[in-house]
Write a protein that binds this DNA or RNA. Sequence first.
DNA 1: CGGCATCCTAGCCGATACTG
DNA 2: CAGTATCGGCTAGGATGCCG
Lengths: 128, 128
Amino acid sequence: MDMTVSSLAATDRGHKCGVLAEHLARIGDRWTLPVVVTLREGPLRFNQLRRAVAGISQQMLTRTLRTLERDGMVARTVHPTVPPQVEYALTVMGNSLADQGLQLGNWIHANLQAIDRSRTVFDARETD
Amino acid sequence: MDMTVSSLAATDRGHKCGVLAEHLARIGDRWTLPVVVTLREGPLRFNQLRRAVAGISQQMLTRTLRTLERDGMVARTVHPTVPPQVEYALTVMGNSLADQGLQLGNWIHANLQAIDRSRTVFDARETD
DNA sequence: CGGCATCCTAGCCGATACTG
DNA sequence: CAGTATCGGCTAGGATGCCG
């Protein structure tokens, strides 16, 4: 049984689909995709990552990385040095997630103009 | 200048990338993708859509559809009958968004097992 | 039937301070 | 350097009730 686009669509119709929605929400949160996409170019240490993502708080980076690690998207490696060094790297699955994120990002980037125009038109009609 | 995956990655590194994050958050919210994917198979009326999505409240369906309409993803057509009928259909751009959603859905579906396993292992280590 | 207004809650997320 | 702990705001989203 192959899992193609059409078969998923059928599932979406018939089922509760709550599981997919749940995971979609996770991926769609504020920082998951930015972090994963940033890690795509190579492993980074905590504060390197913090600087690279630019805007993320230390707290949220920690949380996001924890969740990603739990989900098997990133691998956490502690080097027992002084001071301690912790490296984060994408797993194979994490890398495929990053690909998905980039595709989504590309789609957004490609449609930004159209969306903005549409919003302007819509808002203009509301303001009448 | 072509907008490929690599060029976007570069943008992500250098820029604030706040705009992309903003739109990602929108797409990644609880109902946008489910609604768009459901509409992919054809136009639906409000309550048909409500039943098809299964789990969405009337309020959230209204909000989601409004936003999607504002962003130019769905077209809203009012038939002046009694009782009133309102039909929602995907625009071309909305249809391409649905494709993105399906790809993401397929990715999730393909990796569900692995994610669950990873979580189990992770949680077991924490409980030690 | 389709949709707006209101109230309310959960939890995401940020800021700050502290630890090993 | 790499976290943990705590507090608090904001808002997505659910429940309910009313309108055309």
